[in-house]
Simulated scan of single mutants.
Amino acid sequence: MKLGLFERKSVRVKRTLTVTIVTVLTAITSVSCSNNKDVLVTEIGVTPPNRRAVRTSQAGKFFLQAQSQHVQGNSQAAIASYTKAINLNPDYSAAYKGRGLAFFDLGDKQKAIADYNQAIRLSPNDAEAYNSRGNARAAQGDNRGAIADYNEAIRLSPNYAEVYNNRANARSTQGDKDGAVEDYNQAILLDSNYAIAYNNRGNARAAQGDKQGAIADYTQAIRINRNFGPAYNNRGNARAAQGDKQGAIEDLQKAAAIFQSQNNNQLYQEVMNNIKELK
């Protein structure tokens, strides 16, 4: 039975492909095929815009407007507003960081990195900026550069659970499954309700052949977030690998319904295809 989204001739995963944003400014979903071609959905933690850097100046007003537009999913308008804020205040590091995230959401990783570079130049102790630049570098396939950024973010903010999750993703992509599990463990230790980290640790355990441990992690992710489509999808794959056909179909049907409600047509269709093959 073929459960993969993409065919692979090699045994090991060579790269992870970003597909879509599952929840606005919260996490980015990526899919990859494991050595048995199961679909594994992994999520990158993305810090949403915050209002800590709000200013009462005209630049600050454009900054607030950009944040609102970004949260509403209008990244192009947000970029325009962030740019107005930057034109009025060229040293507005938070605006560069916000615009970088908007560029990232639009898929322009190079412009995102340029803005994160500027944010870091202006605020060299901003752990969020390093984390965001790490995400952009990882999305470009530069996992070494991403890990360096995540390391710096952790140095600046040792209790930053999201960064451990993201560094784990990069380590997993490099084949360091043990290192990835250690980082996921740390992310969960810092935030016991971090559903994304449980889901991603499940993927790492599945890649290590620990299907039972993977299922336990996916189940915990679902307990924390009942509408977490990737965790249902991944648990369905793990159950199918264990021969639990009925349990797999139930999980995949739940995942399909969630992806459909999120207008994620690509994942919805792929999961539906897998359900048909299981039946």
Results as ranks from 00 to 15, higher is better:
R205I: 01
D210S: 08
S132Y: 14
A204P: 01
N169I: 01
A216I: 09
D149V: 07
E152R: 15
G179C: 04
Y194M: 05
Q174S: 10
N200W: 02
Q212K: 14
A216F: 09
R171L: 11
P124C: 03
D176M: 05
K177I: 10
A214S: 00
R205A: 03
A204L: 03
G141K: 05
N200L: 00
D176W: 01
L122P: 11
A216K: 13
A138P: 02
G145C: 12
L156S: 10
G141V: 08
A206F: 15
G202T: 03
G134C: 08
N165I: 10
D210C: 06
S123I: 02
E152P: 03
D183G: 13
G141I: 06
K211T: 09
Q212T: 15
Q208P: 06
N131K: 07
A204C: 01
S157M: 05
A197L: 10
A139W: 00
N143K: 09
Q186L: 03
G202Q: 06
Y160Q: 13
A138V: 00
N159M: 00
G175L: 03
A161G: 04
Q208M: 10
R121H: 13
N151P: 07
S157G: 01
Y150R: 13
D210E: 08
D191M: 12
A119Q: 13
I120S: 06
Q212C: 04
